[in-house]
Structures are given as structure tokens and as C-alpha cells.
């Protein structure tokens, strides 16, 4: 023990020369560092093989995946090249003991600066303009088609409520003063439009391949409505009514997550999304309205 300690602690160099001599110094560290730099992109690749987004299950989701995959490929390529260059430099220049290049001329500097400028403009800015903006427009800017089903989503510490408008297609008015144990959303009992509203707790049922418009509201604090497979994410802001729409194109059962910190139970604010064939969906809706 004491010997190891002594060996470890003896090395207090007080000059540059002293700091760069001795075992495991200089070249060997350069080689190790270079290897490490090469390892990083490789590790990224390994991780990526294991960790990918869940299979996409909505129409616009394919566009988001395209954006992500483009970035993975382009940026991943840059990552590889960047780390390879770093590795090469570290290895190469830790093996010489004389400076071989000192100052670039102003022109050379500017010429080299063009490389990252052009690369970033092409890869980052170009990528977003070509792949990103159209999907963004489709998800956020475009209006939902006329045949869209409308469902209201209400976030509450720590449950989800879903409300279907009923046969009249209208949501009844709500007000906070009507909220109690039996009336979780505070439906106004005097509003006829609310009589046939269907309120479901924790489970959202949707027909497959039909556009759905979600009206997102919160009863208390911020929440985040996240459907990983459908690539739908939208924060819910109390005091605002936010709408998003999408087309689920895979039937099946999925999970709904909350992704904006909302308090103690944030980690268990789980909902279920059931995407079902249109016929089944209508059946379910009719059964529950009667």
C-alpha cells in the first residue's frame, strides 16, 4: 500500500520538461487518446443499434423519423469524421518534438473557416429547410381536415381525462366552480351541449386511419402530452386551449406519457391509447352514449 502510494505521489514536476518525461507520458497517452476518440463514434453506433424510437404509428410520424434519420446519418457522419480527425491529430502531433506549422496566413484561416460554415449551413440549416419545415408545417400549421374526430384531453395531477363531444358534435361548457368528485371536468349542468358528452378516464380510444384533432387543456399545472409511437408531443398549458391533429395509422395499444414536470406523480401519469378499426370504434362509442 505504502509503496503504491509513494510511487503515485512522487510525481510533482515543477517544470514543463519534467512534466513530459517518465513512463506513460507523451506518446503513449497520445495513442490512447486517439483510440478513445475513434471509439466514440463506434460506441454511438453500438448504442444506436440497441436504442431506437418505437416503430412509427402515425402519418406525419414518418416525416419526423425521416428528419431524425437524416440527422443521424449526416451528423453521425460528421461525428465520425470529426473524431477521426481529432484522433489523427492527437496521435500524429504527439509524436513529434518540433513545431512543424506555426501560423496560418489570414487567408488560409478564412479558407478553412469556410469548411464548418458551409458544412453547418448545408447539414443543419439545409436539413431543416428540406426535411424539417414541411413536417413542422403539416403537424403544427396546417388545419385538421374536415372529417377529423375531435377529442378533448384534460391533464390533471396525475391522470388523463378524455372527452368525446357526443352526437351533437359539441362540447359542453365547463367551469371550475362545478368541479367535484362526480364532475371531474366541471361540466356546466345547465348547458345542453354537455349532456351527451362522454368522459373517459385514462384511456383514449381512436379509430385507425382517421384524422383526430386533440384539444388539450389542463386543470392545474403544465403537463406534456406524449405519444411516443405516434410522434406526437405537445405541452399542455393551463389557461390555454391548444390543438394538435394527427392520423394514427396502426391499430394497437400504446402508452401515453406526461413529459412536462407536473408534480409528485409525474412519473406515473400513465394513459393508454387504443387505436382500433373504425367499425369497432363506432360500436364502442354508440354503446357508451346510450
Amino acid at each position: 500500500m505504502g509503496v503504491i502510494f509513494n510511487i503515485l505521489m512522487r510525481n510533482h514536476p515543477s517544470t514543463l520538461a519534467a512534466a513530459t518525461t517518465g513512463p506513460l507520458q507523451g506518446r503513449s497517452h497520445g495513442l490512447l487518446l486517439a483510440l478513445f476518440c475513434l471509439l466514440v463514434p463506434f460506441l454511438c453506433f453500438l448504442f444506436w443499434k440497441q436504442h431506437q424510437p418505437p416503430p412509427v404509428a402515425s402519418e406525419h410520424g414518418a416525416g419526423i423519423d425521416l428528419m431524425i434519420n437524416y440527422l443521424l446519418a449526416a451528423v453521425g457522419g460528421l461525428l465520425l469524421v470529426g473524431h477521426a480527425i481529432l484522433a489523427w491529430f492527437v496521435w500524429r502531433f504527439s509524436r513529434q518534438d518540433r513545431v512543424t506549422f506555426r501560423l496560418a496566413t489570414v487567408r488560409t484561416e478564412w479558407k478553412w473557416a469556410l469548411v464548418p460554415v458551409v458544412l453547418m449551413l448545408l447539414v443543419a440549416e439545409g436539413g431543416v429547410l428540406v426535411f424539417g419545415v414541411p413536417v413542422w408545417k403539416k403537424f403544427y400549421v396546417a388545419k385538421a381536415p374536415a372529417n377529423a374526430l375531435t377529442v378533448e384531453v384534460t391533464g390533471q395531477q396525475f391522470v388523463w381525462h378524455f372527452r368525446y363531444p357526443g352526437k351533437d358534435g359539441l362540447f359542453g361548457r365547463t367551469h371550475v366552480k362545478f368541479i367535484d368528485d362526480d364532475n371531474v371536468l366541471g361540466l356546466d349542468p345547465t348547458d345542453a351541449a354537455g349532456r351527451d358528452d362522454l368522459i373517459v378516464n385514462g384511456q383514449l380510444r381512436l379509430p385507425v386511419n382517421r384524422p383526430v384533432r386533440l384539444r388539450l387543456r389542463s386543470k392545474d399545472v403544465l403537463h406534456g402530452f406524449f405519444l411516443p409511437s405516434q410522434r406526437v408531443r405537445q405541452d399542455i398549458v393551463p389557461g390555454m386551449l391548444i390543438e394538435v391533429w394527427f392520423v394514427p395509422n396502426q391499430a394497437g395499444q400504446f402508452e401515453i406519457l406526461c413529459t412536462e414536470l407536473c408534480g409528485l406523480g409525474h412519473h406515473m401519469m400513465r394513459g393508454l391509447l387504443q387505436v382500433m378499426p373504425e367499425r369497432e370504434f363506432e360500436q364502442w362509442l354508440n354503446q357508451n352514449h346510450s
Partner: peptide, 20 residues
């Protein structure tokens, strides 16, 4: 990215003293 380039390129041609 330009700053990144300058960081990496600062190694070019140097004689690296790999102290801590």
C-alpha cells in the same frame, strides 16, 4: 462550428506535450 474548427486546428503542426 468555427470555434470547434479552431480548437482542433490548434493542434495541427504542434508538438504536443501531453501533461494533465
Amino acid at each position: 462550428a468555427v470555434i470547434g474548427l479552431c480548437l482542433i486546428a490548434s493542434l495541427w503542426g504542434g508538438c504536443l506535450r501531453l501533461t494533465t
